[in-house]
Write a protein that binds this DNA or RNA. Structure first.
Lengths: 252, 252
DNA sequence: CGCACACTGTGTACGGCACACGCAGACCAT
DNA sequence: ATGGTCTGCGTGTGCCGTACACAGTGTGCG
């Protein structure tokens, strides 16, 4: 384990709870969890753009530089925020026997987390996750394919595919929140504006397909657009994975 | 058309070439295309993080504030950069009769553009595209489904799905470039480091699926990982769309 | 018991950033 | 010529991330 502590960046050490043991020097006045919670609170209230080192520190009643004892850069702060915002995934319902139900539940849970914290989609991340709760999510995603004939590589790719899909479609559907200020126009308004502008610009000669799509009202009509669209596209993705499963199933 | 000019933001007006007509005042010393090209050059050489208003202006031999006559914010600059970096899509090869071949070519072209300009994935965008060349891409994506029984909504969703997939998988595959500095370690090294750390942290009791995946060597082995993985996942996505097409096909 | 030292939070400072604002001059339609 | 309008420029503001030196604090070891 000491090898772990040696090589991992400090934030990961703290996130994995290596901080428990007694050490010389003053007792820490802050904690990773506290910093993460404060940053998440700020992002929830005022957008990711409002999250600055000084703002987070002020929220906690400390000075800016204190944070650097726990988080060595802004990027590290982002890691902590993601860890805090996603939280631990709900334990799997073992009664869901089918892989489709399991992975659907997983995908929906991710979407819900993003809906709770829209700024998650704007967080710039530069490496795959290694933090504990993120690994819990990964574990749950992979385990959804248990019982299928998919290989390890297949499962990883499929999980990534579903994750990619959820993030992407949520981003498109939510027509991303502006980060620096609250907007007075709703998402629907934004869609309307977009549809109108697209109608203006989509010259039927140069853009026949776009024009016909616009004319068909695809962009303007929306009922419970978000959820319907999500389920619809997810079904398409899962159908693709299902065909992969069939391909992997040995024919008797 | 004057209604167009009235309501559209300035950048879009310029991008659509409304700037042609004669107007009072001095001749503009800059152009949208020139600004975009300069910004793209900087991003290619030094990463997206190196793109600042002052840096772009310096590249052009002008002062920082001159840019704001053409681009009203940093976000607008991003729009111009994307427009420049993607360029116009190659004209469709009408000989590709099948929708699968057409959308595959489209997806591959997008991936190639991203490979040419990796920073494209880091560009924060807050609204769907309305710039001319981006609409060309959209047109081509939609037209790939001509001849299928898919509805307008279906085609839009399918195109978005493929686009999402390409962006997502490319991001994962390229284990995103660090933006502020050149890295001495290659992508493979980064993968190796990740695999080793994951092996350290993936306690088989808490993370059985991850552990078994790691042990199966999924993370460490990679041949021509990028392309294989891309084609593989794309096939899965297209299989899903194909099942949708079957569903839409009326049974005689 | 006391001491060295690792570790804590803090203050100051720096360079860079996006952008507001006001200005002087260039060019057009009249 | 002349008025209005648009160009590019210079100055200035507030914020950002973070490097660095410093003083206080508590622990484990001698």
């Amino acid at each position: 384990m000491e090898e772990t502590a040696e090589k991992l960046p400090r934030v990961l050490q703290l996130l994995w709870g290596v901080e428990g043991l007694a050490r010389p020097g003053p007792k820490p006045g802050l904690s990773i969890a506290g910093i993460g919670a404060a940053a998440v609170k700020i992002a929830d209230e005022a957008g990711l753009g409002a999250v600055s080192m000084s703002r987070v520190a002020a929220e906690l009643g400390f000075t800016t530089m204190s944070l650097y004892r726990y988080v060595s850069s802004k990027n590290d702060l982002y890691v902590v925020m993601v860890e805090e915002a996603f939280g631990k995934p709900e334990p799997v319902d073992v009664a869901r026997t089918g892989w489709r139900e399991r992975i659907t539940a997983w995908a929906t849970a991710i979407r819900d987390a993003i809906h709770r914290h829209p700024w998650l989609l704007q967080v710039p991340l530069f490496e795959p996750p290694l933090s504990p709760k993120q690994l819990d999510w990964m574990e749950q995603g992979l385990s959804a394919f248990e019982g299928t004939p998919l290989t390890g590589q297949d499962r990883l790719s499929s999980m990534v595919l579903v994750n990619i899909y959820v993030r992407g479609v949520t981003q498109v559907t939510m027509s991303v929140f502006v980060n620096n200020q609250a907007i007075d126009q709703t998402d629907q308004d934004a869609d309307q504006i977009y549809a109108r502008r697209l109608a203006l610009l989509a010259d039927p000669e140069r853009f026949p397909s776009i024009a016909s799509t616009v004319l068909s009202g695809t962009f303007t009509e929306d009922g419970d657009f978000g959820n319907d669209e999500f389920q619809f596209g997810l079904r398409t993705v899962l159908d693709g994975i299902e065909s992969l499963i069939h391909r992997r199933t040995p024919t008797p």
